[in-house]
Design a protein around this nucleic acid. Structure first.
Ligand SMILES: [Mn+2]
Ligand SMILES: [Mn+2]
Ligand SMILES: [Zn+2]
Ligand SMILES: [Zn+2]
Lengths: 151, 151
DNA sequence: CCCGCAAATGCAACAAGGTTGCGTTTACAG
DNA sequence: CTGTAAACGCAACCTTGTTGCATTTGCGGG
């Protein structure tokens, strides 16, 4: 009861996981759902907080690490290190939606913020070079961290 | 005795440190020397190993962290995170020259190419955000790799 | 529907990298 | 030379991430 989800919408994550050839577990589905509904790459700690569903029995810290590793291994998630040296995870496929705008990376908390502006056109490349991706990243301190530390 | 150093060469690090407006200590001089003579950015662990001078009393782990922080704070060293999430330090001045132009990173061979173009002006930031650094990186395959693989 | 087994999970212990608190020592301005 | 703020050494602590092992679970095959 109280399970009001659009039938066409449920189990998208489960299907992806099955298609990737690994076991479909409650944990993997929850984590992949969280990654899909996130607007920026999430750290292990942020995921743990976001997964705090009172109904669910709160998954183990190590299990979350292993789930993330398995999602990366089968190509469903991407892993990258942030400015603080902490790993952040994002749903694969979601990265293309971040291709066309600028990102701000807080050197203090490691947070990633999507800005509205789109990246400027790339300069002319030397002969023979093939462009694949443009990364226009701004680094500094976010509003929260600036406040907290900024005297 | 046994102190055979070219007179013009000695104390360059000490002078830099003094000019930066912080106290000149044996530890800071040793670390800045090590950073200057390194060919790549060094991690805390690598520095600790490299500083294993039997004559000196082997500086404390925490002190090394604090020395590195102080060198970064006064602009004599740069701190960056590597792909494993570990901080690496380098003498400033070496990289300063790469601050004001665009880079192309070959995803195939890992090479970094400096382009002539300077990075475009950053977009307006949300309220409270403080900008420190702008990175405009292009990713793709360089001329050599494009040729070799480009069938 | 049930079984068996590999894969996944939970828990405890561990490890590396980094930070904090505090008493002692040291650089250096006056 | 002296006083003092800054730097140092040491112990304890924290966060992020990993490993070993016993228990549970997804799921293919009967
Ligand atoms: Mn984005
Ligand atoms: Mn350059
Ligand atoms: Zn921040
Ligand atoms: Zn290349």
């Amino acid at each position: 009861m109280a399970r009001a989800l659009a039938p066409a919408q449920i189990d998208v994550s489960a299907d992806l996981i099955r298609a990737a050839g690994v076991k479909v577990t409650r944990g993997r589905v929850r984590v992949l759902d969280a990654l899909h509904s996130a607007r920026q790459p999430l750290s292990h700690a942020e995921l743990e907080a976001r997964l705090g569903d009172p109904a669910e029995p709160a998954m183990d810290r190590v299990t979350l690490y292993r789930i993330l590793d398995s999602l990366v291994a089968c190509g469903l998630a991407l892993k990258a290190v942030d400015t603080r040296g902490v790993f952040r995870f994002s749903a694969a496929g979601a990265q293309r939606q971040h291709a066309n705008h600028v990102h701000f990376r807080c050197t203090d908390c490691g947070g990633v913020f999507c800005l509205k502006a789109e990246p400027p056109p790339p300069p002319r490349l030397p002969r023979g070079f093939r462009l694949n991706e443009v990364a226009f990243d701004l680094r500094g301190t976010c509003a929260g961290c600036s406040l907290r530390e900024g005297a």
